[in-house]
């Protein structure tokens, strides 16, 4: 028996919109810790890890660990039927091949339930070790989205370089080149507008912009994004989900041929 009641149902809607471009089908794992997902994109270039901690739900019942395979497009179709202010409850029974999403309007005058078919998904679970990163950049998520969008009109890849001067995003394409430098500005009045750069060692890595742009679908989840970089390791692009957890995207770098 599984029953998860999320008062801020819009969070689940935003989570789905954040990941469904990258991943088509995925297993949602439910345990005492929370509701989580780990999945690679079909090319095995990027990985998404989601955690919604049990404490963040108003009611969280999960009698035993359960894994539910879902089509994220179908799940998104159902969650789009929930109002932004609705309370969403996810219900499942042991051995059942369906999951139910219940939507309650804030005034309790409209209650809907949508039953979705589950699917069997073979997926490998990867162990992600804790790593010390050479550089950690925190910046407004909307600014990062703007930079990825702007650069992708010039080139296909972005070089992210961190020095003590700040973080530089560069691209080149047939029509020319572009460089955008963001400097640390932690003295701004609003913390959500701050850019901070922690650097232990200078880093410079190349990534496909197509994936970076896909990660920025998570922008509505958080005002800030954290980009963790180490030479020759995947970048981690993290959007924290207020009080509940995170969506983390891992992207393998491109290297010189």
């Amino acid at each position: 028996m599984l029953e998860l009641r999320l008062v801020q149902g819009s969070l689940l809607k935003k989570v789905l919109e954040a990941i469904r471009e990258l991943v088509n089908d995925a297993n949602f794992d439910c345990s005492a810790t929370g509701f989580s997902l780990q999945a690679m994109d079909s090319s095995h270039v990027a990985l998404v890890a989601l955690l919604l901690r049990s404490e963040g739900f108003e009611h969280y019942r999960c009698d035993r660990n359960i894994s539910m395979g879902m089509s994220l497009n179908n799940m998104a179709k159902m969650l789009r039927c929930a109002g932004n202010d609705d309370i969403i409850t996810v219900k499942g029974d042991d051995g059942s091949d369906t999951v139910t999403f219940m939507f309650e309007s804030p005034t309790q005058d409209k209650i809907s339930d949508f039953e979705m078919k589950l699917m069997d998904i073979d997926s490998e679970h990867l162990g992600i070790p804790e790593a010390e990163y050479h550089a950690i950049v925190r910046m407004p998520s909307a600014e990062f989205a703007r930079i990825c969008k702007d650069l992708s009109s010039i080139g296909d890849t972005v070089v992210i370089s961190v020095t003590k001067e700040g973080v530089k995003f560069s691209t080149k394409g047939d029509i020319g080149t572009a460089n955008i430098v963001c400097r640390q500005n932690s003295s701004v009045d609003k913390p959500e507008e701050a850019t901070t750069v922690e650097m232990n060692e200078p880093v410079s890595l190349t990534f496909a912009l197509r994936y970076m742009n896909s990660f920025t679908k998570a922008t509505p989840l958080s005002n800030q994004v954290t980009i963790s970089l180490s030479n020759e390791l995947p970048v981690v692009v993290e959007y924290k989900i207020a009080e509940m957890g995170y969506v983390r995207f891992y992207l393998a770098p491109k290297i010189e041929e």
Binding site: M40, S43, H44, V45, A46, L47, E124, H125, L126, G127, I128, P129, D156, T157, T206, A208, L233, P234, Y250, L251, A252, P253, K254, I255, E256, E257
Partner: peptide, 14 residues
Amino acid sequence: DGYQLNIDLFFTIT
């Protein structure tokens, strides 16, 4: 533009 590495090179299957 460089050679794209795969993500599963970096993590082990658990």
